[in-house]
């Protein structure tokens, strides 16, 4: 087969580009610790969500010094619990499921973004190093009120968080 030398050069260039792209993805996975949401959250039948020990009472739970777990249910058209409040510097694992249609959970302006699929539990761990308020929205069409479906993650500064905890007792 006769291929012009420039075209051969481009063929090589294109392959180099492809390998470079794949390496970027692999590098980011291996070195920076960015992790894909996967099957690790397990499954749950939508009918069982309301009776489930975790999702029957959607909540934020402190499980370690700086570790929190959030059991969240996406409803038509709110997230429960809302808002999610944690102190700065915490590592938060979200477990999100839906007992209705497909939703999305996205913390606006960040890379936190997952689908919420009935039957599946999306498990994602996020580190919140900076205090501040983050907007949350549903980014998958889920019915008429979809555009209303929003929420918040509030990351409190250390002292504020301690005050809040103190106020509780």
């Amino acid at each position: 087969m006769e291929i012009h030398k420039y075209e051969k050069a481009w063929l090589v260039g294109a392959l180099v580009l492809i390998v470079f792209f794949i390496s970027t993805v692999a590098y980011v996975t291996a070195v920076t610790g960015v992790d894909m949401v996967d099957e690790s959250g397990g499954t749950i039948h939508p009918d069982d969500v309301s009776d489930d020990e975790r999702f029957g009472d959607p909540r934020v739970e402190q499980v370690g010094e700086n570790e929190f777990e959030v059991y969240m249910v996406a409803l038509q058209f709110i997230f429960r619990p809302d808002p999610v409040e944690v102190p700065e510097g915490s590592e938060v694992t979200f477990y999100i499921t839906s007992d209705n249609v497909v939703h999305g959970y996205q913390i606006v302006g960040t890379n936190v973004n997952t689908m919420v699929i009935p039957g599946q539990i999306a498990e994602i761990t996020v580190e919140f190093d900076e205090a501040g308020e983050y907007g949350v929205l549903c980014n998958e069409y889920c019915g008429i009120g979809h555009a209303d479906m929003e929420g918040k993650v509030i990351v409190h500064p250390e002292d504020e968080w301690e005050e809040m905890q103190g106020g509780d007792d």
Binding site: V34, D35, V37, V112
Partner: peptide, 28 residues
């Protein structure tokens, strides 16, 4: 060749500036 250069430069910018420097990320 020009396209190739644009692709590589934009790719690096997107990953570095928009993604890796872009706030909280899923780490587990």
């Amino acid at each position: 060749g020009l396209y190739f250069v644009i692709l590589v430069v934009m790719w690096v910018l997107m990953w570095q500036v928009e993604f890796l420097d872009g706030g909280p990320t899923v780490v587990g």
